[in-house]
Nucleic acid binder design. Structure first.
Length: 364
DNA sequence: GACGCGTGGCC
DNA sequence: TGGCCAAGCGT
């Protein structure tokens, strides 16, 4: 026996609701695969309202895949400044260059090739294939898992990789003919607007009447998700090193390593310290000297806390007078003397922008 | 499978 | 106020 539509009371009302309620978002103007791609990367773990201005600027600066492929990496990183998860920008840039060279600037339209691109995983691949190419591929993100875990009362931990596979199977079975992109987006839109994590708006939900989670009063305890480990606290001594003589009016910045946390971003020099040794100027001067920076630690300026997903920095910022920086250090090209105005040429994590602007404010 | 990887908004 | 969360991916 052939099942015509195993989910008639979900798919149809959902699509109808989506048609009437979908938001007017900049990446919904057309289905250019490159535009969809950029939007999906930016939207990873990031809110729509945060992404919109970044997306607008990014598409203005890099309107086509070729434009992005030909841009210097530092410019791409600068366009991502403040958005977080900066490896997304570097991976997107790498992947776009790959598409330009290997596929003649045409974004692949099959799972194998598109998944081989840096930064494109199962979700993003499904999103591009369905939205840009109309292929019946699932695009299962956090929204989709929340919606489906509630509707079908699925109690698997959504933090486990296997759960996503289960959801993808479900979506494949539910996928309506000819409307793959709309269906995937409708699932996410429902999760974003109605089936929200904390206080779902069940009374106006288009599929309320068949939602098992709701019917059994479980909507607030779904989805099941294992708690993340708390960020590890670390103390850092931050050196605001002001130049003398020919570097008068400038301060010293440093480029981070090519891999890892905030890779390739610029920052103020800072060093891990033990809680009980902080504020000892001798230790600070020793740490700076190991980097080839000869400076005196001066007055304490401010403390700043910053929490990453896995780290919590407690930053103690000190004013320093930079007598000189060793030739080896400067020639490494990872250190620069700059003014506040020069910051427009360098990509900084937000935490350092805050610190520098704060210092600049109190100095002027 | 577990961890590393940013940031800001929300209640 | 702080813990939680948001259109995940790489290793």
């Amino acid at each position: 026996m052939i099942e015509m539509d195993p989910h008639p009371d979900f798919t149809a009302p959902l699509l109808e609701w989506y048609d009437a309620n979908k938001r007017d978002l900049p990446w919904r103007k057309n289905t250019d695969p490159y535009r969809i791609w950029v939007s999906e990367i930016m939207l990873q773990q990031t809110r729509v309202d945060t992404v919109i201005p970044y997306y607008e600027r990014f598409m203005e600066k890099f309107p086509t895949l070729d434009a992005l492929a030909e841009a210097p990496e530092d410019e791409v990183l600068k366009s991502w400044e403040g958005l977080g998860y900066y490896s997304r920008a570097r991976h997107l840039h790498m992947a776009v260059k790959e598409v330009k060279e290997r596929y003649g600037s045409r974004v692949p339209d099959n799972r194998e090739e598109i998944m081989s691109l840096k930064g494109v995983g199962p979700y993003t691949a499904g999103a591009i294939l369905s939205i840009a190419y109309g292929k019946p591929e699932p695009a299962v993100d956090g929204n989709v898992m929340r919606v489906l875990s509630r509707f079908y009362l699925i109690t698997e931990d959504i933090a486990k990789p296997g759960t996503r596979l289960l959801m993808e199977k479900l979506v494949r079975k539910m996928m309506p003919e000819g409307r793959a992109g709309d269906f995937n987006q409708a699932l996410m839109e429902l999760g974003a607007l109605i089936c929200t994590p904390k206080s779902p708006h069940c009374l106006i939900c288009p599929v309320m009447s068949n939602c098992r989670g709701r019917l059994e009063g479980m909507e607030l305890s779904l989805p099941v998700k294992k708690k993340a480990k708390p960020p590890r606290p670390v103390q850092r001594l931050v050196a605001f090193v002001e130049g003398e003589d020919e570097h008068e009016g400038k301060f010293l910045i440093r480029r981070r390593p090519d891999e890892g946390l905030l890779a390739k971003m610029w920052e103020l020099p800072h060093y891990e310290i033990q809680p009980d040794t902080m504020a000892t100027s001798q230790l600070g001067e020793q740490l700076l000297k190991e980097d080839g920076i000869y400076a005196n630690i001066g007055e304490w300026i401010l403390n700043e806390e910053h929490t990453f997903s896995h780290l919590h920095w407690e930053m103690h910022v000190y004013r320093c007078r930079g007598r000189m920086v060793s030739e080896r250090t400067l020639s490494s090209d990872r250190y620069r003397w700059i003014t506040v105005d020069d910051m427009q040429d360098y990509a900084f994590p937000n935490v350092f922008i805050r610190i520098i602007q704060n210092i600049h404010h109190r100095d002027t």
